[in-house]
Design a protein around this nucleic acid. Structure first.
Length: 275
DNA sequence: CGGCGGTCCTGTCAGC
DNA sequence: TGCTGACAGGACCGCC
């Protein structure tokens, strides 16, 4: 579920209950997610005040008043749920609990446990092994067609696979890779290095537009919870190709097709995205 | 270095 | 209804 827009939506939802508030109780209910949860996780964060909730690629970063930074990745199935006051009961797969002096209780729930949490510091987080090699943030001026052209130089893999590479551009996942390529009218199988400079410009713009629109729609669903049930918000109703095999392209009415690339499904319109 | 396949884990859904 | 297998929004790791 969580690609950049979903993580950004969660980030925005976490600001009111967390920023400027002390965590009165923090608890890890198991030892391991994708990696071991840091020792004394709860003890190290209980009593700390949250200074900011930030995002880098698909990672959430929570800054604390003692210089600690919590890194949280939602993996495939991770979600954050909020309740005002303690819930009657924890749900299955509620792994991390954060009680805030604001009155809100946050729970990180992740059935598949591909998510991860780690603790680092304000000085060290950019060099964290999971973060240091990540490419430019797509919604900033650090990313454009020129930057993309350099990043994909010499890459013979299909462009769909290459934009999923987090060192090329941060935050693209399987849904938005297909969506951006359709918007840019580029076939997913084309070797990345064969893209023209004009292709790169169109693709960079399409990536920005698709992600921005998804954030806009996802963000509008927030109120007293962070994405109910971890659902995608309303952007799924606007998907152009993802999950629409056999349905008519919204641009040309041709049937949407699907292929498998490196084990993952890709959706496209052969008319709009000629090989 | 680039590219590919295997792998972590559980839930859901289609098909029999 | 119950079982089985395929598949799912991520990304690291080892191997070629």
């Amino acid at each position: 579920m969580p690609e950049l827009p979903e993580v950004e939506t969660v980030r925005r939802g976490l600001i009111p209950p967390l920023e400027g508030h002390v965590l009165t109780h923090v608890e890890a209910r198991r030892d391991t997610l994708r990696f071991p949860i840091p020792k004394d996780f709860g003890k190290r964060l209980t009593g700390r005040k949250v200074l900011a909730v930030r995002r880098r690629a698909k990672y959430l970063l929570v800054d604390f008043d003692d210089g600690q930074v919590m890194i949280l990745h939602l993996g495939m199935s991770g979600r954050v749920t909020m309740s005002y006051g303690r819930p009657n009961a924890y749900e299955k797969h509620d792994h991390l609990i954060f009680e805030s002096a604001s009155g809100w209780v946050l729970r990180f729930n992740d059935a598949r446990r591909f998510g991860l949490v780690d603790l680092t510091t304000i000085a060290d987080w950019p060099n964290h092994p999971l973060i240091k090699d990540i490419g430019p943030e797509p919604l900033t001026d650090a990313f454009d067609g020129a930057v993309l052209a350099v990043a994909i130089k010499g890459r013979r893999s299909p462009i769909k696979i290459v934009i999923l590479d987090q060192t090329v551009v941060a935050g693209i996942g399987n849904i938005y890779a297909s969506e951006a390529l359709h918007k840019a009218k580029i076939a997913p199988e084309r070797p990345a290095a064969d893209l023209s400079r004009a292709d790169c410009d169109r693709l960079a713009v399409a990536i920005k537009q698709v992600l921005e629109r998804a954030i806009e729609v996802g963000g509008s669903t927030l109120r007293d919870h962070v994405q109910p049930n971890g659902e995608l918000g309303y952007f799924q109703h606007e998907w152009s190709v993802y999950g629409r095999t056999g349905e008519p392209c919204r641009i040309c009415t041709a049937a949407i097709e699907q292929i498998v690339q490196t084990g993952r499904t890709t959706f496209f319109c052969r008319t709009c995205q000629p090989a």
